[in-house]
Each structure stands twice: as structure tokens, then as C-alpha cells.
Design a protein around this nucleic acid. Structure first.
Lengths: 221, 221
DNA sequence: TACTTTTGACTGAACAGTTAGTCAATGACT
DNA sequence: AGTCATTGACTAACTGTTCAGTCAAAAGTA
């Protein structure tokens, strides 16, 4: 009885410590990037010795990838859920954007890391964790492709390579997150949801039906 | 007479060598990124010794920033030129996009470096070169802001913060360059010019005036 | 319960590999 | 001869990783 309870106490503490290290690592990696961050600094931030790092993780890269994988997997799954639960294309896109922006507001440090390290993460590698991450990224890309393909077939999106429309949507989203990170804006990015969706579907052109102002030529091609 | 000619020959050679080093460095930085690239490897690629690096550049970072600055400055100036030389908003945007995409097709390695290192480049710093780079980036951002502001005042763009429209345009462009780099596509990105411009102005929605297909609801809000 | 033994997370210091940067010597060109 | 670009061995510092030793908690024993 007591034995089992005590054992689980040790385990719970270990897991908690692992989590503390991961959170410290997230802060340091977000500040410095993978290469410039040192194991020493992470250990210090987590208030453990350097050796303790290697109880929980095989090496620095393993620590880094473990950190990213959890969130990536979770976000990827959430995105698939919300997209598949919506019936209408416009709702799918709207929910996709909302989910992404909410995740950003919840954990900017994670997106800071991703923004800086994405090229490395999608590079070729033998590492299992990194392969899985790459796969996860491609799955999300495929999810967006599906959405676009569907929209094109329904005649609701312009007739192009679905991937190009996907790139466009993701590009707009990433550009907003990057801007929020660059300027250190504290207001929630989720407030941009409808603007982003409208810009994606309708573009930047003013579509209001008003009499033209002075000196304007007709814009439509 | 002869002396002056000889002096200039030496100078010309020195300048040429500097250029060779810069080009070798570009290849290595594009492959490895700033941190993972070593001065030894750059020297080897340039077919010089490591010591020769330090004749031309104060240190590794100076080499890196010099490399980027030249192109950045040139691209920034070219963008300002073409934008200011066009009269119409749509032409400004079109030329902006074309100039950017052409520059990408001309030198993908440069954009590979920028894509990977942009967060570091816009970070806070004391370094003079890096400060100048950050300033150059902000100037281009301002250029885009101006374009958008003008379009908004003319009633040709939707009434929002000009910066948001700028983010959108740049986001779409960057997303396409990133995709081209990720997949190693060899076909010129400049072929995407009109698609990108149309997506920016008109969005992803299909605007053709055709009878709706089966099972479609009206999409417009 | 009182004791001994075992476990294993954790420490801290040492290790080993790497790499940016230096400099005395070399050699080529004027 | 004098100047200057170039070399490449060297240094100094940094940093990821290891490991013998520590100690509190868990398990075993009577």
C-alpha cells in the first residue's frame, strides 16, 4: 500500500521536475535560439544542476525537440478537429485561423521558437523526433490543402493549385504572428481573426459599393 | 606611372578576393546557417586560409552582416525606385512584387539566409551594421505602409491600419519564397507574380460570374 | 515499529571536442 | 629592399557530455 503510494510520489516529482526543465528551456530557447542557448543557462533557469538535464533528456537536441513536439502535436490535432467538425468552407477557415491565433496568444514563446527555428526543423535529418515533427508539419499542410481543394471544387475558391491558396492563408497568419512578436505587442492576436479571414477570402481591395471619390479611375481589371 | 598602375592592380585583387570570400560565405551560410557555419569551412570554400578572412573582416559576424547588407541595401533601393516610379497603386504593388520575386530568382541563397536568420537580424543589438540592417528593413516596411496608406485614402483598399495590409502582402510573398526554398523548386518564382497580386487585391474567393454549381449556398457575407 | 539496505535523482567537477581569433614566418610582387 | 597579402600552427575560451559520489526517500527485515 504505502510502497505503491511512495513510488508514485517519486515518479510524480520526477515528472514535475521534467516539466520545470522544459518550461525553463522554453524561455531560454525563445530568448536565444537553439544554438546560442547553453545547457548551463537552461539548468540555471530551471534551478537544477547541469547533470540533472541528462537524467531527463539524452542531449540538448532531444530536450529541444521534446519541448516542441508536445505543442506541435497538440496544435496539429486541434486544428484537424476544428476543421473536420465544421461543415462549411468559410467556417473551416475561420475556425482554423481562430484556433491558430488562440494558440499563439496562449503561448507566444513557443511560436517565437518555431518562427526562428522552422527552417532547421524542416531540414533533412535522421533524428526520429525531428522526422516526426516534419511529418506533423506536412500533415497540417495537407489539412490546409484539403480545405482548399474542397473549396475549389465547390467553385467557391479561384481555380488554382490548392497549395498556392494554402500558402497564402498560412503566409498571412505567420506574417501577423511575426509582427506581433517583433513589436512585442501585448494585445491578443485573436482580435485579428475576422480581418485575416476577410483578407484571405476577399483580398485587400475595397469592395464597398460607394460612389467613387474624386480623381479615381476604375480599379477592376 | 607604373607605380600607380601596380597599386591599383593590388587593390583590384584585394577587392576581388574579398568578393570571393563573400560569395563562398554566402554558400556556406545558406547551407548551414550562421551558427553552424565555421570560419574554417568558409575559408576552405573560398580557397583561402582562415587568417585571410581576418584581413577583410573584423570577425565572423562582420563577415556575415557585410554579406547581407550589400544585397539588402540594393534590394531596398530597387524597391523604392520601382514603387516611386509607378503612378498607379496597382502598378506599384505589381512592380514591388515583380522586383522582389526577380531578386529571389536571381539569388536564392541570399533569401535562404534571410529566411533562416531574420529573427536574429531584427533583434535588439548594439552592432552598427546590424542596426543599419534593422533600419533598412523598417524603411522597406515604411515604403509598403506608404503604398497602402495611399490606396486606402484613394478608396481602393479596405479601411484598415495600412500596416495590416502591408503585413498581408509581405506575408504572401514570404510564404511563396519559403515554399520554393523548402521544396527546392527550380522554376522561376516570378511566374507567380500575377497570382500573388491578384490574391492580395482580390483574395482567394472565386469571383467569376457563373451560375452556381449544385449544392452551393451563397458565400457572400 | 526500529533498523538496515537499496535505489536513483541529483550534484559538481572534470573531460573532450570544437572553434573564433592571433601572429610570427613566408613568399610574392613592385 | 620593402611592402603587403597570405599562411597555418597556436591559443584561449566555450560548451556539450560524462561520471563518481551524495543523500533523502523507498523497500526490505525482524
Amino acid at each position: 500500500m504505502q510502497g505503491e503510494e511512495n513510488l508514485s510520489r517519486r515518479l510524480r516529482e520526477k515528472i514535475a521536475h521534467r516539466q520545470e526543465i522544459l518550461e525553463a528551456a522554453k524561455r531560454v530557447f525563445a530568448r536565444k535560439g537553439f544554438h546560442a542557448a547553453t545547457v548551463d543557462e537552461i539548468a540555471q533557469e530551471a534551478d537544477f544542476s547541469k547533470g540533472a538535464m541528462y537524467v531527463h533528456f539524452a542531449n540538448k537536441e532531444d530536450l529541444f525537440l521534446s519541448l516542441i513536439q508536445e505543442k506541435t502535436e497538440e496544435l496539429g490535432e486541434r486544428l484537424e478537429e476544428v476543421v473536420h467538425s465544421a461543415d462549411d468552407l468559410e467556417n473551416k477557415v475561420r475556425k482554423f485561423v481562430k484556433t491558430y491565433l488562440d494558440a499563439f496568444d496562449e503561448d507566444k514563446e513557443f511560436f517565437q521558437i518555431i518562427a526562428a527555428e522552422h527552417p532547421r526543423l524542416t531540414a533533412q535529418t535522421q533524428d526520429r523526433l525531428q522526422l516526426r515533427l516534419r511529418e506533423r508539419y506536412l500533415e497540417t499542410l495537407r489539412l490546409v490543402d484539403e480545405m482548399m481543394q474542397e473549396g475549389i471544387h465547390q467553385g467557391r475558391l479561384r481555380q488554382t493549385e490548392p497549395r498556392f491558396l494554402g500558402i497564402t492563408l498560412l503566409g498571412i497568419i505567420h506574417s501577423f504572428t511575426a509582427q506581433w512578436l517583433l513589436l512585442g505587442r501585448k494585445d491578443p492576436l485573436s482580435r485579428m481573426e475576422s480581418l485575416i479571414v476577410e483578407l484571405f477570402f476577399g483580398g485587400a481591395r475595397d469592395n464597398r459599393k460607394v460612389g467613387s471619390r474624386k480623381g479615381e479611375k476604375d480599379v477592376s481589371p
